[in-house]
């Protein structure tokens, strides 16, 4: 009888073993955000986790971990140190890739494992109120009086914010001054407190403030006009600065040597989240973004191509040589 029990238990275990489908995360998953809380990447990660939970896509407990500093290098390095771990994922945005190129950081794109891309995004130049600067021309006029007197806040040095700043600075007849902060929340405090004259934000970071009349957009770094509340905001292209535009991606990576079945799991989780109403409505539509799902392999290729493009752009503006 005892033997029979053991045998039975063993066969049940065996059946369960063979029945077990693809890999699934166990325990706690760390979702690394390499920027401080309240910024664009943080909002993105927290909403993604919400979509996963609400629609039962990921059963494991996913904890968002803010590892800010070093223009994203601190978070990249942290994820890099989790070599082969299937339970660590990280937000990966173009700015992070860019700063790893311009700072020649130890951890670059080729050290991480791309899992997928969900959104394309852009940037805006914003001031505190129309009383400060009614439009971009007024800001340039003021800046022309004294070099480096008009300050523009953004996240990190050598980042996408810094790049668009440099592109803009190079095409106006004035010297603007860039002030790097640790995260979007810090830039917002500085702008609302009047410690910088203008600042660069993602549309999702500043939409609420614009609606509340606490911020005034001066121009969009996009190819086309953005949706509400930015429908009246001119693009820099419209203002005559033809090449001052940027298209940013928001993707996700894992540590180096992440097992193939884990990559497949997370790619699928991203795809399913992308199709949910939560994601489409509360993220893409509410925040005026451009939604696009790009799988793991295609993202790897896409990122590599973008990395080359940034290298070229950064060399052109003199960040790297």
């Amino acid at each position: 009888m005892k033997h029979f029990k053991t045998l039975f238990a063993a066969s049940v275990a065996l059946m369960m073993g063979t029945q077990a489908h693809a890999w699934e995360p166990e325990g706690t998953v760390e979702f690394v955000v390499p920027y401080s809380a309240g910024g664009g990447s943080d909002v993105n990660a927290r909403l993604l986790v919400e979509a996963w939970r609400k629609h039962d896509i990921v059963d494991a407990n996913v904890v968002v971990l803010n590892k800010s500093g070093g223009s994203g290098a601190v978070g990249n390095t942290y994820t890099f140190s989790k070599d082969g771990d299937p339970n660590t994922i990280q937000t990966y945005v173009s700015g992070q890739m860019m700063s790893s190129i311009s700072n020649n950081a130890a951890v670059k794109l080729e050290h991480l494992t791309p899992l997928g891309t969900l959104t394309l995004d852009t940037l805006l130049l914003v001031t505190r109120s129309a009383d400060d600067y009614a439009n971009f021309a007024a800001l340039v006029e003021d800046a022309a009086k004294e070099p480096n007197s008009v300050t523009i806040g953004g996240v990190s040095r050598g980042s996408e914010d810094h790049l668009v700043f440099t592109m803009l600075n190079d095409s106006v007849d004035a010297e603007l001054q860039y002030v790097p902060f640790d995260g979007g929340g810090d830039v917002l405090s500085a702008l609302l407190g009047g410690h910088v004259d203008a600042a660069i934000f993602n549309p999702s970071e500043i939409g609420q403030q614009v609606e509340a009349g606490r911020a005034h957009p001066l121009g969009a770094f996009s190819e086309e006009r953005l949706a509400a509340p930015f429908e009246a905001t001119e693009t820099f292209g419209e203002m005559g600065y033809a090449d001052v535009a940027i298209s940013l991606f928001r993707g996700y990576v894992g540590p180096p040597n992440m097992p193939a079945e884990a990559v497949a799991y997370w790619e699928n989780a991203l795809k399913e989240a992308y199709e949910t109403e939560t994601w489409q409505q509360e993220y893409i539509a509410d925040k005026g973004l451009i939604g696009r799902f790009i799988g793991a392999a295609d993202s790897a290729e896409f990122y590599a191509r973008e990395a080359e493009k940034y290298q070229r752009l950064l060399e052109a503006v003199g960040f790297v040589n």
């Binding site: 401080s36 809380a37 309240g38 943080d42 909002v43 927290r46 909403l47 986790v49 919400e50 968002v64 803010n66 929340g185 917002l188 405090s189 609302l192 609420q208 403030q209 609606e211 509340a212 606490r214 509360e282 509410d286």
Partner: peptide
């Protein structure tokens, strides 16, 4: 009042706010 998290803990709660469909911000 402004949608800016002042501490690590309020940043986590910010995630909670968005989860419940609230848009943290001056409104």
């Amino acid at each position: 009042s402004l949608g800016i998290p002042g501490s690590g803990t309020s940043a986590v709660l910010l995630g909670g706010l968005m989860m419940w469909g609230l848009q943290p911000g001056p409104l």
